[in-house]
């Protein structure tokens, strides 16, 4: 069979994998942003106990590989009586990992707001909540956009690791096909193109977004 036929034949399967990769990434990114925002707020307001827990979570999560986290969820947790299916494991794992990266991104933005801004706010008598609401968050969120954008791309790429727990996303589909038909060139080419189709447009959009929000930065 010619390469072209191989590609045409496996296109529907790849499409399925592609859609699953997109879908898992999407849920993972949304979940990570929510978890990350909560953690960074707990840290910002120094909520007793909870902020400590957030700090520990962030350090554990960002200093261990997703693959090991997934193995833990998928193979070790059932022994304790929690059994999740592979896709749920993947999503939980991705959010567990992404939450800490997003938390770091938000916190970095909040910390990056210049001292003069914060001190000026205090000087005109803003309460801690007002300071956060009107001074730190609007500027900090803008400052955190580049980090959040980089994290999104990182998380999409990380979904390729789901192949180890046999979630039929794009990488898994390609590796399965290679295993069955030994046509590594064609399938790998499709795989690389598949990721490029997601990541190139996204990174262009994010670059434009970063430029746009920079107009909003102030006092730096």
């Amino acid at each position: 069979m010619s390469s072209w036929q191989i590609i045409q034949q496996s296109l529907p399967l790849f499409e399925k994998g592609f859609v699953l990769t997109l879908w898992l990434s999407f849920i993972g990114i949304i979940g990570s942003i929510i978890v990350g925002l909560i953690c960074s707020l707990l840290k910002y307001f120094r909520v007793p106990i909870l902020s400590k827990i957030a700090v520990i979570y962030v350090e554990v999560s960002r200093n261990t590989p997703l693959l090991v986290q997934l193995f833990f969820l998928y193979y070790a947790f059932p022994v304790l009586g929690f059994k999740l299916n592979a896709e749920l494991c993947g999503i939980v794992g991705l959010i567990f990992l992404g939450g800490s990266y997003m938390a770091e991104g938000f916190s970095g933005g909040f910390d990056g707001v210049s001292k003069t801004q914060v001190e000026t706010g205090k000087a005109i008598g803003l309460s801690q909540l007002q300071l956060a609401r009107y001074v730190v968050f609007p500027q900090g969120l803008i400052l955190s956009v580049p980090a959040l954008a980089a994290n999104m791309i990182f998380l999409i790429k990380e979904t390729s690791i789901f192949t180890v727990i046999a979630i039929p996303e794009m990488t898994n589909t390609a590796l399965d096909l290679i295993g069955m038909y030994y046509r590594s060139n064609e399938y790998l080419l499709m795989l690389v193109i598949g990721y490029a189709l997601i990541l190139i447009p996204l990174s262009l959009i994010l670059t434009i977004l970063e430029k746009r929000v920079r107009y909003g930065s102030f006092g730096n």
């Binding site: 790429k157 390729s160 790998l188 795989l191 690389v192 990721y195 190139i200 990174s203």
Partner: peptide, 9 residues
């Protein structure tokens, strides 16, 4: 744009 898993393969 290439995930490390893909790169390795």
């Amino acid at each position: 744009i290439t995930p490390t898993v893909v790169l390795l393969f």
